[in-house]
């Protein structure tokens, strides 16, 4: 961001920063990377030049797990991560299906310091040596198909769907597709485009930015904006380093985090609107289900059982005897009601 650059230049007060860190991301994600660049610049400004963070986008510092391990070791101080449960055991709480559905809800659920998902995810990151600073949202997940428009769960019948190794999403799809003959296949992300093009699979889940930027719309006929999941990338730093910082620097980082998060959500919301128009013009048949139709899918997903299977054991271990699963679900319901009331 050129605007951010000038801020840095004018803020050159102290000649040599006390802390020089690296921020790594494995991905090429235009909008998110702009927000991260701003975040790094803001840290410099708000810390009065005492912390300087160099941003390495597009996998320059390596793959996702590579940067993650380096963050744990402290050789790369900060990064943006997807908290897959193999590397972050509590990570499934970041993206349980059918919870957060809009940017308004996300702002309340994921925001530091009081958002309920922020609190549990920070705990989840603490367990693996990370400190959660803020989250960046690509937005809602939908379902793409090459066979037919997906209006009810029965439209899944007989299709072959690509899934990743995210167990929560897999369980959710299993439940929604129960009795329809839907089969799920793990295919590496890098092979998804060719697999859809050649018909190895008929279906996948996707997001507005992935449809456009990763060109999934070229190889998909139908897309249902189901919003059955919410994407949130976690911006995290090494925990030990965080704990060793004086409070004023911690404040500076969290202030930068807050600003970056706001900018990021705004930018993604705008980009998603642009992408929707672009995709409609490009000939992708987009279906926006009604509230009733979404309720049918949601019912089928049988989320309470998935919470019980995947989340409760971890939550019980870290919040013993507090019935945390129910507390989170209640709080998410409260947020949903609050946003609905404010919107209506």
């Amino acid at each position: 961001a050129p605007a951010a650059k000038t801020i840095t230049e004018t803020a050159t007060v102290t000649p040599e920063p006390e802390y020089k860190w690296r921020f790594g991301t494995p991905w090429t994600q235009k909008t998110r990377n702009e927000s991260i660049a701003l975040f790094c610049d803001l840290i410099y400004v708000y810390s009065n030049g005492r912390i300087k963070v160099d941003f390495y986008p597009d996998g320059l510092l390596g793959s996702h797990t590579e940067i993650f391990h380096a963050m744990q070791e402290g050789t790369i101080e900060m990064g943006v991560f997807a908290p897959y449960v193999d590397i972050v055991p509590g990570g499934m709480l970041n993206w349980m299906n059918w919870t957060v559905e809009t940017y308004e809800e996300a702002a309340l659920a994921y925001s530091p310091p009081d958002g309920i998902l922020y609190k549990v995810m920070d705990k989840a990151w603490e367990e693996v040596g990370g400190k959660l600073l803020w989250s960046s949202y690509f937005g809602p997940y939908g379902l793409g198909s090459n066979v037919r428009p997906l209006i009810t769960p029965d439209d899944l019948r007989g299709q072959k769907m690509r899934v990743s190794a995210s167990l929560g999403y897999v369980r959710c799809m299993e439940n929604m597709g129960k009795g329809t003959g839907l089969t799920l296949h793990t295919i590496p992300w890098a092979e998804l485009y060719s697999a859809l093009e050649r018909g190895v699979v008929d279906m996948c889940w996707s997001l507005w930015p992935s449809l456009v930027e990763e060109r999934h719309y070229e190889v998909l006929k139908y897309y249902t904006a189901l919003g059955f999941g919410w994407d949130a990338g976690n911006i995290v730093m090494n925990r030990e380093l965080w704990n060793g910082l004086p409070p004023d620097l911690q404040d500076a980082i969290m202030r930068a985090a807050k600003d970056a998060e706001l900018r990021d959500a705004e930018a993604h919301r705008r980009v998603n609107t642009e992408y929707k128009h672009f995709l409609a013009e490009a000939g992708l048949q987009i279906y926006y289900p009604t509230a009733e139709e979404r309720a049918v899918w949601r019912e089928r997903a049988n989320m309470p059982a998935i919470w019980e299977e995947l989340c409760t054991p971890w939550l019980e271990k870290h919040y013993p005897g507090q019935n945390m699963t129910q507390k989170i679900l209640d709080e998410l319901d409260r947020i949903k009601a609050y946003v609905a009331a404010a919107g209506g």
Binding site: S63, T65, E66, H69, A70, E73, T75, I76, P188, E191
Partner: peptide, 18 residues
Amino acid sequence: ESLVWLAGTAYSAIDSYI
């Protein structure tokens, strides 16, 4: 500079479907 990243990088090169 630190040598620590060498092992992780070498490892992740093998961690590949290709």
